[in-house]
Each structure stands twice: as C-alpha cells, then as structure tokens.
Design a protein around this nucleic acid. Structure first.
Lengths: 245, 245, 245, 245
DNA sequence: CATGAATGAGCCTTCATTCAT
DNA sequence: TATGAATGAAGGCTCATTCAT
C-alpha cells in the first residue's frame, strides 16, 4: 500500500518539523522570555514560513504551552529512567534527585517557562488538547516519585509518617524546585557564597530525606558510591557535572 | 514656615500616590502577568493620567521592578519582626517560617513576579537605582535568617555541619520558596490531594530543620504551642489561616 | 520559466509601490514639513497599511532620506541629459542651468527637504545603505557640471582662473541653489517686485558665467536661440515655462 | 514717579529674560532642529519654569519664529553697519558681503531655521504680531543692499542694466545665501576639495559683482586692502576668520 | 506673577495572524 | 501544502499646553 507508506513518511516528517520548531522556540523562550521574540524570527530560525508554524500551533501561546509540555515530558522521562535504578528505595529517590539535576542542567530555563504559564492569559489562547497534554505530563513526574515513596513505606524504609505519602512527595518536589529556583538567583554568590548551585540541590534533598527518616540515612550509607553507580548506569553523559572532581 | 509644611504635604501625597500605583500594578501583574495589561489601563485604575505614571517610573519595566522591590521589602519586614521573637533559635526560625506563610498569604503573586524578573530584557530598561534597591531588599531577607542560624550554631542548637551556615540558610529558603511555588500548582489537589498548601509549607520547613539537626527537633518540643505564641505576639491578624481549627 | 516571470512581476509591482509611497511622502513633506503628518496619513494616501510602509522603509526618517535621494537622482538625470547637448561648453553649462530650472519647477520642495536633512537626528535613524545612496546621488550632480568646466578650461573657453575648476563648479551650483531658495521667499514680490523667479535664476547664472569669463559671454552670443535649441532637443515638455512669451 | 521707575526696570528685566530664552532656543534649534528638544529642556536651560516661557511666547512655533526674527534683525544690523562704510559703492557692497560672512560665522544655523519656516504649519500657530515682525526684519536686509545698488547706478558705478536694481539685489543675495547653503554641505570637501567655505562665499560674490559690471572690477582694484579697512573699521572682532593668514 | 504637576492626544513602531497565490 | 506580503490593532512613551497653588 504505497499511499500508506507515503503518509507514514509524511507524518514522520511532520513530527520532526514540530520537534524542530519546539527546539528553537525553547531556545528563544530561554534567552528572551515571551515577548522579546516574534514568530518571524522563529520562522527564520527553523527555515519555514510563518504560515507553516501556524499549521502546527494555533497561536504563540499554544506554541509556548507545547514547549512546556515537551520539556515536562522530558523531565518525566528522566524520572522514569531514574526510578528503574536497582537499589534501595532511598537510592531510587536519590536517583530521581540526580535526574532533577540532569534536567535542570539541560533545561535551566524550564522554571521560568512554567511560571510564565501561571498567567491566565495563556490558558485562554491555548487549545484544549494542549492543556490536557500538559496536565498529563505534570502527573507523570509526580507519579514516578510517589510510587517510590509508597514502596519505601511498604518496605519499612520510611516510617509511617503523621502525614501522607503524597505529602512526602510534595516535600521532595518542593525542595527540588525551590533549590533550583533559588539557584537561579542572580545574587546567590553574593548572598550565600554559593558557586555551584547543583550541589546544593542534592544537599537539600538529603536534608529532606533525612527529615523524613528515609533509611538508610545520610550518615548510615556511602551515597557517594551510589551516585557513582547511578551516573554510570543511567546518566553517563552527565558525569562531568554530577560528580565534581 | 508655611512653605516647608506645604512641601511636606506634597511629598507625602506623592509618596501615597506612588503606593497607590504600585498597589494596582501589583494586582495587574498578579492577574495578568506582564504583557496582558497596559499603562493606559493602569492609569484608569489609579485615576491618574499616563503621563503622571511616567513621572514616577521611567518605563513599564521600571515600574514592575519597583513592585517587586516593595514586596520584597515587605517580606524582609515580616522576617525581621519574626526574628525578634523571644525563644530558642529554632523557635525563631519557625517564626520566620510562619512569616513566610503570612507573606505568601498576603502576596500570593510574588514568586510569579520574581520569575518575570529573570528575563534579561527587564534589567536593561530599569533604572540603576531601582536595580540596586532590589538587590538590597533581597539581601535583607537572607541576612535575617542567616543571623539566626549563626546564633544557633554558636549556641550549640545546631551541630557544626559539614557545610556552611550560608548553605543552611539557602536550604531553608529553598524549601520555603519551593513549597510556595509547588503550592501554586493548578493541579496540586489532583496530584497530591493537598487542599491547604500553607500547612505543607511549614511541614516541609520542619523536615529541613530536623534534617539540619536543629534542636529541639520536631518530636522533642510542642511547636503547636510555640505557633500559638508567635501568632498572638507577632501576627495576631493572621491567626485565622495560620492556626487552622 | 513561469516562476521567474511571476517573481519579475512581483518585483516590478514592489518597485512601483515604492515609487507610489515616495511620491506621496514627497507631497506631504512639501506641504507640511516633517512633523505635521504621520505614517497613518501616508498609509491612507497610498491605500496600503502602515505595516506595509515599514516593509519598504525602516523608519520615517529612512523614508524621508529615500525621498531626498530619489529627487537628487532625478536632478542628476536632468543634468546628465543636459550635458549631452551638442554645442559649446558654455552652451552645455547653460543647458545645465535650464535643467536646474526644469528640476526646480518639477520639485519646488526639494531644497526644503534637503535642509531638513541637516538635522543630525535624521542620520541617526536612517539605514546605512540609504545614507550611502544619498551621497552617491549628490556626487552625480557635481560631477556632471564639473566635467563640463574641466572641458571648458581645456578648450580655452574659460580662462585658467586663480581658483580651481572645483571652485567654479561650486560657484555655479551656489548661484543656482541660492536663486531657487531666494525664489521661494514668501515676500519676494514685495521685496523685489519679482514675479517669475525662474527667469531670475538664469539671469543670475549668466552673471556668474560672465564673471568666470566663460566664452562666449552673454553679450557675444545669442543665447535666446541656444535656449530654443536646448528646450526643443532636450526639454520639449518644459517649453511653456522655460521660454516665456 | 517711583512706580514708573519700577515698571521700567520690570520691563527691562522682562526684555532681558526674553533674550535669554531666545538665545537658548536658538542653540537648541541649531543643535537639534525643531522636534528633538522640548519646552522642558528649554525651561531647565534658562532656569525658568515652563509656565514662564508661555508668558513670553504663545507656542513653541511662535518661539521659533521669534528666534528667526531676532537673528534676521541681527543680520540687518550687520548689513546696516557695513553700509556705513566710507568708500566706493562696490566697496560698500563688499562690506555687506563681509557682513554676510560675519553673520554666517555667528549664526551658522540660520538658514536651517529659515527653511523650517517654509512649512505652512508654523505660520498657523504663530501670533500675527510675530509674523509681521518677521517680514519687517527681512525687508531691512533687502533694503540696505538695494539702496547701495541704486546709488551705484545713480553714480555710474554700475551700468544701467537690462534688468532692475531689485534684480541685481536679488542676484547678490542669491549668491550669498546659495554659497552659505552649499558651504553647509556635508560632503563639500569630498565633492569639491573645499575646506574653508567662507572664502568661497566672497569669491562667488566677486564673480556676481563682476558679472554685473560693478566698477571697479575685481582686477581693477586691490580689494584685499579694502577688506583690511572694512575689518578694522567695522568688524574688528572678526579679523581672525575674515582675513586668513 | 511664577511654578511645575497633571493632562491626554498623538505618534511611531511592532507583530500576531490571515489568506491569496 | 507552503509561503510571506499585507494587515491594523495595540501599546509604550512623549510633550505641548494648562492651571491650581
């Protein structure tokens, strides 16, 4: 069935072009925010016409939401890879912590884009499909960490706390996001003398895990060795910045 | 000296008007982000002309930065009030945690505005005075918490950690900001079944304080009683949402 | 090659529209100067949108400079046509004198626009290409007259003067421009009883040519007959105002 | 009569302030044209308030016209001083030529301002008194030169020409203005290798005087000596640039 | 009379979006 | 289907002018 083959290729090409557009849009968002670039510039960058852009995305806002969802899915991908790490539940949690660092390193602009999306005006101009896709991508990240914590409690690695597993999940996500956001602070070096924010992120995650009583605690286990394994097995490309000399 | 009196009143009026403008600008920023409102709308809202707005602020970006600085100073005010609480150092830290909740309750839009400021384009159009003022306001918040942690270490309330007092400060600020940002997540109830994000913020802060080994630990002291004292002595107006039934 | 044909037509249409815009802009400049009209009015006049204007010209200043360059090139065209007149060098000089009258008649507003360009602010906002084009157009006019004067000296029609050929060129251009500028004086009729300034221009040019000793002098030759030939051979359309009854 | 004295002083002060305003406005016009400065800047420069400016001039256009008239009167003053020179009529004409150079040197921006005034929009917003004053100032310049030429013809210094004395006046004014305008050309050095345009002005005036047959002709008299006398008797301050080494 | 804060019409320029080719 | 010229609403900012003090 020749036509089917053709249409498959067409679809594949279309998908590839969409990726190309999203890549460049992400770069522009990271560099300039939302308003300091226009569709013309994006069209030139991807070497397609403005009209073609509008065949993929119904508006500039829709496009930005698509960028955000795509990054969020990449984040979920990293989390899921990390969750597959063979080890104790806390080690798996640690793997997700490292995954969040890999992600922050690859997408330092992500939180910026996410905050953009808090503006009501975005959601008014984005297509319903896009909105739903974004919610799904967000849920994937939560679920991956949540499942590990549920296991940890079931296995007795984490004490049955006076609060829910969902809450513990939120605590870890909060320290992670908070650390990354604070790490973006212009004056961080001035305020706190911190040069490598990614290291701080993991330290902070450790504090929360210890606070949750997640066994083995920081001082009960050689997590540096765990980090070595996680990096070599799951994020070999990221060794350079995850394991500083 | 009649003229002096007149000019004093003028100055006071001017200051009051600036506050009025900043208040409305804050509201617009919270509701619509940066681009979905214009100076005309703000002028109508404050019942002054556009030209008058530009006598106070040199550009829209300058105005937004002024809004951010003003809120940041209010945050520092709350932190400093909290730091004056009479009690153990951890209780003082907790007072600052409550202050951050009072602040988040009063200025739920603050983090949104701060993320806006990460765009380079802002800093290009804002006046130098405004930029410096913003840095100063940020420093006030950090310093207040930092001083308490330094005391805690000096008094033996917090163990001499393998990392610096600055780092501990950053950890607490990170969990606080992260919790507030995650608390703004549209789907939080869906993802984690959490209805009152402000309670989670304090729980998360406790986790980090315990992680830091800040005595007395959560289970060693009745912090509910401490909260009662902090609220009644420092934030009596905020009792309703800080001490839920 | 159909596409080539299409693109040729497109290019032609584009060029035609640019001419249209320049024509109307010239009219507005002549009638109102620089500030008493806006791009909206021009857009309405040419029956295109403002956005389209900005696809041709990068700013209002750029547009004005383009108007000036275009007129200056028309002036150079007339000069070059005049220089091709078969006759003595002084007759060729006279032909250029008539050309300047034809030009002044067609573009009475030109000097006004040129003076506008003396303001520094213009050159800051115009594109470099436009600036260079303007300098080139100016050079064409000078060169045409200069070449004739060089010939006149070489042939012995003009004595070797105590000053340079360039200087003689400047003298003739000065009397020409000066006469046209003075001819625009509102009160010329009141001050000097002069009704037809164009006649005065030529008289003044004759004075300078005689002053330069350019043979044959005014009283040595029947220049009225020369004028007849110049007009019929080169500027037949301009007979009406060049050769008054 | 004390009140009279007071009001006299007041009037004098008022006049002085008007001069101050006109001086600064002239400077701004020369430097920036019409639109690139505003009344606020002028007010700051003269150290009076904007409101005070408007007590002297009914609009910005009115002010500009006043500047032009004042300069034109200064020009007429110079011409009248020159006309008082004791010597032949051609020497008096030459004195006026030098006067025009002194003027151009003192007010290099004058022609720019005059061309500005060709725009209809100016005359619509200027007060009638101001318009009339401007016409009177223009007439003074013409009349001064005209009177000399009438004398020249009456005394036989200039042949009874086939055109009127008014016309001869216009020729001299034209070459003068034309030379100054051409002398302002940015590319003059490039086009004609001319570095000192003021010298060219006088050369050009000589060409026209010779063309008019005004005795004694350039080669019949030592005009360099005349220039020395004119400068020392009438424009001693201007020796530096009128008599180059 | 002097001031300068307040006004608001006006303008250049941008840019998301459309649609004829 | 791809293009990119055309559109025109929108918005930031200016500034001449007024008028209450």
């Amino acid at each position: 069935m020749a036509p089917a083959v053709t249409s498959l290729r067409k679809e594949r090409d279309l998908k590839a072009r969409e990726e190309l557009i999203l890549d460049h849009a992400r770069r522009l968002l990271a560099e300039k925010g939302f308003q300091a670039w226009n569709m013309e510039q994006l069209a030139v960058a991807v070497e397609y016409s403005k009209g073609t852009l509008y065949q993929h995305f119904s508006s500039k806002e829709d496009l930005v939401l698509a960028v955000a969802s795509r990054i969020l899915n990449l984040r979920a991908d990293l989390f899921e890879q990390a969750a597959s790490f063979k080890g104790s539940t806390r080690e798996q949690g640690r793997a997700i912590g490292l995954a969040s660092c890999v992600f922050a390193h690859r997408h330092p602009d992500f939180f910026h884009i996410e905050m953009m999306l808090k503006s009501a005006s975005f959601w008014e101009k984005a297509s319903p499909e896009r909105k739903e896709a974004h919610a799904r991508a967000g849920a994937r990240c939560w679920r991956t960490l949540y499942n590990i914590i549920v296991s940890a409690i079931a296995l007795g690695d984490m004490p049955r706390l006076p609060w829910s597993a969902e809450h513990a999940t939120m605590a870890l996500i909060s320290i992670t996001i908070g650390s990354h956001v604070v790490g973006m602070e212009h004056n961080l070096r001035v305020f706190a003398g911190i040069d490598n924010p990614l290291l701080s992120v993991r330290l902070n995650q450790d504090l929360v895990c210890d606070g949750l009583g997640w066994k083995p605690l920081l001082h009960e286990h050689n997590y540096a060795a765990t980090d070595q394994r996680i990096v070599s097995e799951i994020f070999p490309d990221a060794a350079a910045f995850l394991i500083p000399a």
